[in-house]
Design a protein around this nucleic acid. Structure first.
Lengths: 226, 226
DNA sequence: CGGGGGCTTGAGGCCACTCAACGATAGTGG
DNA sequence: CCACTATCGTTGAGTGGCCTCAAGCCCCCG
């Protein structure tokens, strides 16, 4: 529930192409930019969906809460990812910056206006929404039917494949975030990581528990028993 | 992996409107119809997505399997629901008829062709996909963070709200289907239903365990502690 | 150097799972 | 139409995987 009075201190004219959207009629839509500090809320659940966002750098978590505080993170958004893309008028998640994060943003209504007339844009949005749906479908299988060890392995595999650099990766999110993404507790996540470490599937660089080196990607992926 | 040689024994010219899709250029697209017996596979995971379906009568489950047989049902499709709507070329779920089910169907490629040129159609597809996404997002919260009792209550609440008739509803799916939808076992589902029965939240008509009367919708919904 | 948050590890508990038995029901073939 | 069988659903007893609670370490950061 945060009101942003100043938008895009470093705004400059961009186009839809920068969002990965191609348009038939290339209307010059300008994208703004904005930056969030670690832990800041980008938008809240049930808030009107004013903007659509793309991560330029950093990382974002989007989650739902139960009234007693139980949290389910639905997705992590890393560099390049689009989020906050709603069809309705309100957000269905709360989105927060996990670390210092800068985003591109575009007025939802304006995008909708373009999509109403441009089938190509509409199909791009459809394609992005389908990607989100596919991810959610796979995550339902994980949450409903996989063991703790399988969940953590699948998570590391997902992060590994989304990371550019092979082998070593630096996770932006805490154990709590991982736990709330996987439907576990932090202790169970920690124990699973320890097991994978002892089994020489992964190791750490230095003493930073978020800097992980995948030693055996095949064994990691084979815990995806799908 | 089932090959349908005869399509639409009772086909008659329908339009996209019957799928709930409005089109700017109302191209006369004809919809076929087909019928499936209880337990029949409509399409399989990873199969090419030839058709898009709408339930005319009956009920459909769509699910994913792990290699060892663990199953996660992602959604139940009841009368009027669209399913098998893929953006890519392959199905991401297996779909089966839960009971005798008849469906309308349309060639996916033909729908795609229309959507490519008609923004209105594309936006309709986007809207349907978004509904599926919203359902999946809520289901992730259920699977990741809710107790067994909360899950069963949420399930009954969902079915109740999707049913036209108030009060009494007749579930087409078995306890096993419900369990695989909620990420539980059949025994746990059964025990939860029994608890709700003893708490006078619901009761049964006759001796059919699938004919359920919701006595106290508010207490049922209040177990949705969201 | 002290405080605090993040992470790990251990001990114990509980909720959902497993295994098992049984009644009720639906489907099948004579 | 009825026996027969398989399937479905419930219930109980016991187990186990993950959660809870607690302690302690490490690192970051003031």
């Amino acid at each position: 529930m945060l009101i942003r009075t100043t938008i895009a201190p470093a705004s400059r004219p961009n186009s839809l192409r920068d969002l990965g959207i191609t348009s038939a009629s290339d209307i010059g839509i300008t994208l703004s930019e904005f930056s969030y500090k670690k832990g800041m809320e980008i938008f809240g659940e049930r808030e009107p969906a004013e903007y659509v966002y793309q991560v330029k750098s950093g990382a974002v978590r989007s989650y739902k809460l139960l009234s007693d505080g139980r949290r389910q993170i639905g997705a992590f958004h890393l560099s390049g990812d689009i989020f906050g893309l709603e069809n309705g008028t309100h957000h269905r998640f709360t989105a927060e910056a996990i670390v210092k994060t800068s985003v591109r943003l575009i007025k939802r209504q304006r995008l909708q206006l373009v999509a109403d007339n441009d089938a190509k844009v509409a199909n791009n949005l459809l394609s992005m929404t389908t990607s989100n749906l596919e991810h959610a479908e796979n995550h339902m299988l994980l949450l409903g039917r996989k063991t703790a060890l399988e969940r953590v392995a699948a998570f590391l595999d997902e992060m590994n494949s989304r990371h550019n650099a092979a082998g070593v990766m630096s996770l932006p999110m805490s154990r709590r975030d991982i736990a709330d993404y996987l439907g576990l507790t932090i202790e169970t996540v920690s124990r699973a990581v320890t097991r994978l470490h002892r089994a020489r599937v992964l190791t750490f660089t230095s003493n930073n528990q978020r800097e992980i080196v995948i030693l055996d990607p095949r064994r990691l992926a084979s815990l995806d028993l799908s």
